[in-house]
Design a protein around this nucleic acid. Structure first.
Lengths: 159, 159
DNA sequence: TCTGAAAATGGACCTTT
DNA sequence: AAAGGTCCATTTTCAGA
């Protein structure tokens, strides 16, 4: 599953994870490679799926979704088709940014971006109260987004 | 704080959130705008901070970080400088992808990408056990990343 | 909205290990 | 073979009329 990455790959990935707009020529200068080599490596990394995709990161505040909510959910039954249905429901909801199926005290952890608490209340109806397989859920409202990203740690030494 | 977005802005943002590599000419065709207009709008959205940045999304699995962990942390004291120190510690840790300071049963929610459980154990030492202000913490290990992203919901009708 | 210049990407081809 | 470098064609971005 994991793919061999040399020091050049790691450095390139670290850069483009932070900023995908750096021109390949500039990347080449930073890691000591020609632009063509940078181009080939980035293409290879994308083909191999190491780079999943390139995306614009949009500010939730500026777009009127200032509230981040973490919701923990416990299910009634772990029957596979019930779980799959829940996963689909959660994944389909646009306000759900992330959904993890976890082991521990809870079964699901959701991260939501909402306009206000009214919208969240409405979502709890849709996602939790109207779902018979939700046993209970607990809400944590974020007061500050200390760090938000999807960056993967890549020490340059990793092989 | 929030910025006025018309239907064109919303459509463009939806597209580039999913895929930032679509050429502006193609975006123009999709939303019915000239490439120049698309160019101007994207630049404006970036200048205004609506688009925070462009980033490559890297696969944690392919880079050898297959385990996602959610850690809930309760602090001993909410003294402001102690909290700030914790926030900085969490934010600085490369394995911490996200850190939210929350209200509710816990004080912090962390999302971590780790190589294996040994690495997580080591991180709990660094981040939690060696920190006097951590009262207790609870770990949830993700078995499946049902949905992972930072996409902000943007219905085309939003004003 | 159109046109054109500047920049960036990505392929061809050759060289090195 | 595998990967790097140089050079060049194509595509994309982006500013001015």
């Amino acid at each position: 599953m994991a793919i061999e990455l040399d020091a050049f790959d790691c450095k390139l990935l670290m850069e483009v994870q932070r900023d995908a707009q750096i021109p390949q020529s500039e990347l080449g200068a930073r890691v000591n490679l020609s632009t063509a080599a940078v181009n080939r490596r980035l293409r290879r990394l994308a083909d191999e799926g190491v780079i999943d995709r390139y995306a614009a990161i949009v500010s939730p505040e500026k777009t009127g979704h200032p509230i981040t909510v973490v919701a923990n959910v416990e299910v009634e039954s772990e029957q596979i088709d019930l779980l799959d249905a829940m996963k689909r429901t959660f994944a389909r909801c646009p306000q759900v940014q992330q959904c993890y199926y976890v082991a521990g005290e809870w079964d699901f952890v959701l991260i939501l971006a909402v306009r206000d608490m009214d919208q969240y209340t409405e979502l709890t109806r849709q996602l939790f109260f109207s779902n018979n397989n939700v046993k209970r859920f607990k809400t944590l409202v974020s007061m500050s987004r200390v760090k938000v990203g999807l960056e993967v740690p890549l020490v340059a030494s990793a092989e």
